[in-house]
Amino acid sequence: MKLFGYQLPAMSSLILWGLLWEIVGQLELTFFLPPLSAIFSTLMEISTTSVFLKALADTGYAFFIGTSSAIAIGIPVGILMGKSRFLDELLLPWVNMFLSAPLTALVPVLMVLFGFGMKAIIITTALFAIWIIVLNSRAGVMQINRSLVEMAHSFGASPKDAFFKIYFWAALPEILGGVRIGFIRAVKGVIIGQLLISIVGFGALFELYSSNFLMKHFWAVLIVLFAIAFTIAEFLAHLERKVEYYASRR
């Protein structure tokens, strides 16, 4: 960001908003916004409690399994859709539908199908993440240079070789973009799952704190969640930039 020609340090907009928040909080305009400093000291307090750590572990577990399966299924499906006209026409309407569907409304159905436990939460998480991963992998394959495919074919590449040595790498920048957005959506998915399916993990903390109007606690957990999501997204964006050097030259 630049201001009056000066290069401001990274994330200075965050600092600005943090300051504003602190001021509004100190003015005690609304119980909804306690001062940021108070939120952080609450965060320090609760972050070592076993309740918090258990919630973190539960949420992390569901998130990790959910996103891993979304990646493990989403990338191959997307690549296959990009490769095969038939599969694409078969699956694309569904992918588009689920991508824009209000998945939250589906959660009750998932509860009926998969029960009220971790399983349903993991599936919710995966469902939030997977569609954009599929769609991006597909887009990555669609824009692949046909010559590369022909080249591999002409040197006798097996379908497996073509998949792992050509399609995957050619689509990698788009795949990483899809995974990044998928992760962000999965954060939403895991919390929604934990709120609606069974009150566990961070979902349970949100429920507990907001129904008791413990806004400092509420914000503290939200900030932790934001920090985790932000770190993951930044890490993936970093990977994306690393592979971009060839993406622009395909």
């Binding site: 010559s147 080249m151 002409s154």
Partner: peptide, 12 residues
């Protein structure tokens, strides 16, 4: 063996 008009090199 084929030599491609547009080279067809793996950019990565």
């Amino acid at each position: 063996a084929f030599v491609f008009q547009d080279f067809a090199l793996l950019p990565w």
